[in-house]
Design a protein around this nucleic acid. Structure first.
Lengths: 159, 159
DNA sequence: GTAATTGCAAAGGATTTGCAACAGT
DNA sequence: ACTGTTGCAAATCCTTTGCAATTAC
């Protein structure tokens, strides 16, 4: 069940084989509401008894992204994360806690509008965007964490 | 001449040696207004006769970023880019042309304000953010480029 | 002189690719 | 049958690290 049939349909439309591995990988990504790394996906597959090579996972994720059913994210961790796009409002903004690493999705219509406008003012025709806000989440603030600033506090003012 | 003396000052403050290599690397980064990759930097050093190992470039860039004089960017290309922060308004938004790859800096005060507000509404204390807008730049639009959409045009509507 | 940096080469981690065996249509 | 996928290992790319020789202070 779940949303795997959409991926199956996409594969058929494209004349690509519907394989057991592709279905298993899609199932894992579609049934999680988190941002999964390739290792996360491999682990979950292993937990449910599937033993699928990493190369296949990478290749299937590429197909899933092309299908438009899954989105790729880069939070600057040195590797990518993947997230399905079902039953969510379009999430394009991420709040990333620099203390605990938690990533919170959000979506602001106003933000979207202002961005669109700013890009067009530069003669740009925007198609997609990504916004990452780093800071402290509510929990870490409550736990007394402080923002850390490294290096000179504001070197630019000193020029 | 240039802004290298600021970096020198930072090094002295930190009790770190001021070396020929660090000065040459800083000079290259400070005298370019582009977003330089490590390879770009190595090439420019070589062009001006300096032969400095990649490890040293990486290590010096780390110091430059810590000093607050240089900022690190990740445009999802699989490697980092570096940009000095002199004589510019704070640039936190990048327009990235999906046709020619050009990156245009911008800064919108309104955008900044709206972002700040949206983050706080989620209980978040924002410290820094990055926004990347992908699309077509004015030149590529004039040259007749079209936005390319891969895969299903909008699979989410079909669920 | 002492402590830190340099440069090389090797290691590291994420991702990709080549290719023989295999599975989907 | 034919075409495309899988899985493994090797290769690749960017980046980091270990260590002996060198340089800054």
């Amino acid at each position: 069940m779940s949303f795997v049939h959409l991926f199956r349909r996409y594969l058929r439309e494209q004349g690509l084989p519907v394989t057991q591995q592709r279905e298993a990988i899609a199932e894992v990504v579609f049934s999680s509401s988190e941002h999964l790394s390739v290792d996360d996906i491999e682990t979950r597959l292993r937990e449910q008894g599937e033993r699928i090579g990493k190369a296949t996972i990478y290749r299937t994720l590429e197909t899933l992204v092309k299908s438009g059913l899954v989105e790729e994210h880069d939070f600057g961790e040195g590797f990518k994360r993947y997230e399905h796009l079902f039953g969510q409002k379009p999430v394009r903004e991420h709040l990333i806690c620099t203390e605990c690493g938690k990533v919170v999705d959000m979506h602001s219509t106003e933000l979207h509008r202002v961005q669109e406008e700013a890009a067009r003012q530069q003669g740009f025709l925007p198609s997609r965007y990504r916004l990452q806000i780093y800071g402290l989440c509510a929990e870490c603030r409550a736990a007394g964490a402080e923002l850390r600033w490294e290096g000179l506090s504001c070197p630019i003012e000193t020029i």
